[in-house]
Amino acid sequence: MRRAAVNLWIGATLVGLLTIIALLSLVWTPHDHTLLSISNRFQDPSVTHPLGTDQLGRDVVSLLMTASINSLTVAFAAVGIGGLIGTGMGLVASARGGWTEAALMRICDLGFAFPAILFAIMLAAAFGPSLGNAILAIAFINIPIFARVTRGAANQIWAREFVMAARATGRSGWGITWQHILPNIAPILIVQATIEFAVAILAEAALSYLGLGAQPPMPSWGRMLSEAQTLMYIAPELAIYPGLCIVLAVLGFGLLGDGLRDLTDPRLVRSRK
């Protein structure tokens, strides 16, 4: 099999598994993840608790499953919001050109200069830490990324002959954007979104590790990791499980994005022939 296909299949499998587990956790987990049972803490894996129990006697599998929906929600919402706004900005910049384009791109430069973690801490200081603020912070870093990618790709399409033909027939800028530009850059945006998913999952883990993401009792991989840190000497597996989940989720989306890009990139298609 070609490299691209291998990446695609591994990525798609991991992402598919993650999605199934996350959706399953909405209707079923082996145990109630909020159920504390101090006397059953640090249990070894068993039939009732396949990955054992944590420091408060909660079932680790249930925690990891519930945390996966948290990760996916944050990633989906953040990339969705950031992607919509960013793509909009990029399309406007490309369609209007001139000073509008220059101004929008300078705004994006400002956005790039602002670290997401710092923004999240600022939001948490002003409004208290919450899942919503974490989503906002991650969405914020996605805006300039999508704006720049969209503008670059759209500018190339604007220079193509069929677009010039459309312009010559008197079609409006918005009409061309909708009918010709967006469909032609859609594959690029989908690839970008998939890769940003991976980044968003990592960012959510980092924020909740710092206590800025989902608040208890909603579990999150990042917070499980930070809580397991002092337990490294007595129960290292409690840090390994959420760590592994983060790695696999990020790897899955990363490989899927990679595979999709290889599949859709016209340069690669041409070289194959």
Partner: peptide, 14 residues
């Protein structure tokens, strides 16, 4: 941000 507080908090919540 003290362990005695954050840990007790989660149990009291339950």
């Amino acid at each position: 941000p003290f362990p005695y507080a954050t840990r007790s908090g989660e149990i009291i919540q339950a």
